[in-house]
């Protein structure tokens, strides 16, 4: 009885904001306390307030004007969902009618983005690589980039995190992680047969890795996915994509035989290069997604 009243009193204090934490004893750790936050600056001067008000009014007028012009354009556009609107032209006919024959992919969109317009997809993968590279340039921890205060805060947080691993999150991760990973691999490997493909499957794989990292901590992920794995996978996938597609462009774009078998439409090992390219794209996307999470939360992979 005594313990229960004590608990309810503490809960009451916590809800009313009188106590900082519900279980203070859980948070008492040996880690050093983080430093006090820097004091913020005072209210704005009068001149800036005037500027801000006029800025807001001008912004409102500009946006309303732009939206009305766009709405008028929409009113003048061809109707939604009508078959004879000019966007449905001979290119679409060609992709749909000859797509399966020429690329071997049952999914016309996959055949389009990984065969007819594969150069574009190489560019997309390079954009992802560029994004993760620039994020790493900005946020990766090295000798020049570390602040002793921040390191103290992070050490403090890491100790708290290690002592308070969330049991619900861990159990659900154990249950869900295999299913998520399998589904991601399924979506990647079936990219030429069903909706999905490298981008969506890679995003699912990355989400699985992120879930695992948030449940069990970065050090567990580091055992099988560290900076070296990240570099190797990304480089191999992007180089593989580039080399395979260059070969196919050099020969296939001039209607020479490429020697790549297209297989039976509908079978899993079909549609020539699209199968391999989907795996490459999936690897890049999965690495990038986990890389973003890891660099943002820890400053390392």
């Amino acid at each position: 009885m005594n313990i229960e009243t004590n608990f309810f009193k503490r809960l009451n204090d916590w809800v009313n904001g009188e106590a900082d934490r519900l279980f203070p004893e859980l948070h008492e750790t040996d880690a050093p306390k983080p430093p006090e936050p820097v004091a913020t600056i005072g209210p704005l001067p009068n001149k800036d307030v005037l500027f801000l008000t006029s800025y807001q009014a001008v912004a409102l007028i500009v946006v309303i004007g732009m939206v009305s012009i766009l709405l008028y354009t929409v009113y003048k556009l061809p109707l939604f969902g009508v078959a004879d609107n000019p966007a449905v032209n001979e290119v679409v006919e060609r992709y749909v009618e000859k797509g399966l024959e020429e690329t071997g992919a049952v999914n016309v969109v996959a055949g389009m983005i990984l065969d007819y317009r594969a150069f574009d997809t190489l560019g997309e993968s390079s954009v992802l690589l560029l994004a993760i590279t620039s994020v790493m340039m900005l946020l990766l921890k090295d000798e020049k980039n570390t602040d002793p205060d921040e390191e103290l805060i992070e050490a403090h947080e890491a100790v708290i995190e290690d002592h308070n691993r969330d049991m619900i999150l861990q159990t659900m991760t154990i249950i869900l992680m295999p299913a998520i990973m399998l589904y991601g691999i399924y979506v990647i490997l079936n990219g030429h047969l069903s909706p999905g493909g490298g981008f969506s499957g890679g995003a699912i794989l990355g989400a699985g890795l992120i879930l695992f990292a948030s449940g069990f901590g970065h050090n567990r992920v580091k055992k099988f996915f560290n900076m070296k794995t990240f570099r190797t996978l990304t480089t191999i996938a992007l180089l593989g994509y580039g080399v395979l597609k260059t070969y196919s462009f050099l020969l296939g774009a001039n209607h020479l035989p490429t020697g790549i078998p297209l297989g039976t439409p509908g079978a899993i090992f079909s549609s020539g290069l699209i199968f391999v390219l989907d795996i490459c794209v999936g690897l890049i996307v999965a690495c990038t997604m986990y890389g973003f999470f890891s660099v943002f939360s820890r400053g390392e992979i």
Partner: peptide, 14 residues
């Protein structure tokens, strides 16, 4: 029309 789907894919990545 499959072409807008491919364009949306590019857009999402960017």
């Amino acid at each position: 029309n499959p072409i807008p789907s491919g364009l949306v894919l590019t857009g999402i990545v960017v």
